[in-house]
Design a binder for these strands. Structure first.
Length: 156
DNA sequence: GCCAACGTTGGC
DNA sequence: GCCAACGTTGGC
C-alpha cells in the first residue's frame, strides 16, 4: 500500500449507522470492523485528514451517501474488550488488542445518493482493483485512488 | 427471503 | 497445512 494513501471508502448499514447519524454526532469511532484486511487499512494506512466516502450497504438503494474525514490516529477498538458488546472478542487483550479503528468526522452529505447501479456503469474506468465493483464486494474498508475519488464525485 | 461469494474455524 | 463446514456480507 502507498504510504501516501489519502482516500478511502467505508461501508455502513444505514439501519445501524447512516450518514445522517454521522451528521448528528459529528465524530464517531468506527467500531465493529472484524475483518483483518479492513483492519489493516485502518491501522496501517489511515492518517488524520484522509478523505472517506461513506457508503450505505445492505439497504434499498445501496450507494455513496456522503463524505467524511479520518479524525484520529488508529487506536484499539474498545468494543473488543467489552463482554456485553456484540463486537466482543474473547481472544483480544488490552496488552495485545486485535482490532483497531479510527474516528471518522462528518464533512458533508452528497447532494444526492450515488447508487451502486450507477457506479457499476463506470466499472471499467474505476479499474479492476476497485473493491466496490470487484467480484465479491464484501470488504467494508478499502482505498480509493485520487482518480477514482474524482470520478465518483463527478457523478454527484 | 434467497443465495453467491468469501472469510474463518477447527478436525485431522 | 488442507479443506469441509459454517457464518457473514450484501445485492437483488
Amino acid at each position: 500500500m502507498s504510504p501516501r494513501q489519502r482516500h478511502w471508502m467505508m461501508k455502513s448499514e444505514p439501519d445501524a449507522f447512516s450518514i445522517d447519524d454521522l451528521a448528528r454526532v459529528g465524530t464517531e469511532p468506527w467500531n465493529g470492523v472484524r475483518n483483518y484486511q479492513a483492519r489493516n487499512f485502518m491501522r496501517d494506512g489511515m492518517r488524520v485528514g484522509d478523505g472517506v466516502l461513506i457508503y450505505h450497504s445492505n439497504c434499498a438503494i445501496p450507494g455513496i451517501a456522503g463524505i467524511s474525514r479520518v479524525a484520529s490516529e488508529p487506536y484499539p477498538d474498545e468494543t473488543q474488550f467489552d463482554p456485553e458488546s456484540h463486537y466482543h472478542d474473547p481472544k483480544a487483550t488490552r496488552e495485545q488488542p486485535r482490532w483497531f479503528l479510527v474516528d471518522v468526522a462528518f464533512e458533508r452529505k452528497l447532494r444526492r445518493l450515488i447508487p451502486l447501479s450507477e457506479i457499476r456503469e463506470h466499472a471499467e474506468e474505476l479499474g479492476e482493483g476497485f473493491a466496490l465493483t470487484a467480484r465479491g464486494n464484501r470488504l467494508s474498508v478499502f482505498p480509493v485512488t485520487a482518480h477514482q475519488w474524482r470520478l465518483l464525485l463527478s457523478l454527484e
